[in-house]
């Protein structure tokens, strides 16, 4: 319950944070909202020598309209995302997934950037970010670079954020007028996703014109269900057509096995939940 000792800095700018990260070396950890880091520290599963708090950097917080995109500062809390009109209008799927994360208290503190950088495959925000082709803006000593979500999630708890780099902003293309749904399946309300499916579809005249599907906890990273997307496009949004497309949900997955769900059950869930999510999104 008591973390191991560490030093603490709270930089006022991204540049200062990057500098602190470089000086802190391997043993430095960034704390964003801290809702994943603090449990890990309390159980002493990690013992960084330096914790760098991004909470003092005002520029990392906020949601703005960036032309054809919605740009969300990495330190924007789940709570702020949930109440934001731009998100509701243009990136509804993100809001729907965010609503299922943990509980109210955690959503007050937890941040989008923190969740994506943490890259827990059971976390709920990777799948929508991936499905919606978000872009991650990453700052380092030599400036900023942009990484598409498809290249961002590398492995279990591993992202394209390099040493000495910080995720500063997440940009989502606008999906104005799309239907969307996040279908989450867990053991109890508090539990992490056993499997979840993020879906956005553009329905045109009763048929599916475009589809984006992402899967949570079906591999070491969030997974894009491209097979399902392809199968959906051009189909009428009927239960039969959607179910047939959803059968392709497990293509390219590597479902983990644990006490809650062995791989075969997870795969089955992925297919069922994908069908339900697409139906709800298209409805």
């Amino acid at each position: 319950m008591i973390p191991a000792k560490f030093d603490y800095v709270k930089p006022a700018s991204v540049a200062d944070a990057v500098r602190a990260l470089r000086e802190g070396g391997d043993d430095a950890k960034i704390i964003a909202g801290g809702q994943s880091l603090l449990p890990v520290l309390r159980l002493r599963l990690a013992a960084p020598s330096l914790v760098i708090d991004l909470g003092g950097i005002a520029e990392l917080r906020g949601i703005r309209d960036d032309g054809d995109r919605i740009a969300i500062g990495a330190m924007t809390s789940y709570y702020d995302i949930l109440r934001d009109d731009l998100v509701k209008q243009h990136v509804a799927l993100l809001g729907q997934a965010t609503e299922t994360v943990a509980d109210n208290q955690v959503r007050h503190r937890g941040t989008l950037g923190g969740a994506l950088a943490h890259a827990d495959p059971a976390g709920d925000l990777g799948a929508p970010a991936l499905a919606l082709d978000a872009e991650m803006v990453i700052a380092g000593e030599s400036g900023t670079r942009t990484v598409p979500a498809a290249e961002f999630f590398v492995d279990y708890f591993t992202t394209a954020i390099g040493e000495g780099e910080i995720l500063t902003e997440i940009r989502f293309p606008k999906y104005t007028g799309w239907g969307s749904h996040y279908e989450k399946f867990n053991r109890t309300a508090q539990a992490w996703s056993m499997c979840a499916v993020a879906v956005a579809v553009r329905v045109d005249g009763g048929s599916i014109a475009e589809a984006r599907v992402g899967l949570t906890n079906m591999g070491t990273t969030p997974i894009r269900a491209t097979g399902v997307e392809q199968a959906l496009v051009g189909q009428q949004a009927t239960a039969e057509a959607i179910r047939a497309a959803a059968d392709r949900a497990t293509e390219g997955t590597a479902a983990p096995s644990d006490a809650d769900a062995a791989a075969d059950y997870r795969e089955h869930l992925a297919r069922v939940l994908t069908g339900r999510a697409v139906l709800a999104a298209a409805g």
């Binding site: 994943s36 449990p39 890990v40 159980l43 599963l45 943490h118 827990d120 495959p121 059971a122 976390g123 279990y156 708890f157 053991r187 539990a191 992490w192 996703s193 056993m194 906890n217 983990p256 096995s257 644990d258 006490a259 809650d260 769900a261 062995a262 059950y265």
Partner: peptide, 16 residues
């Protein structure tokens, strides 16, 4: 078979 005794990615502290 359900591996009831598997350490739990996807449960636990997220996957930790």
């Amino acid at each position: 078979q359900t591996p009831v005794d598997t350490h739990s990615p996807g449960a636990g502290l997220g996957s930790i």
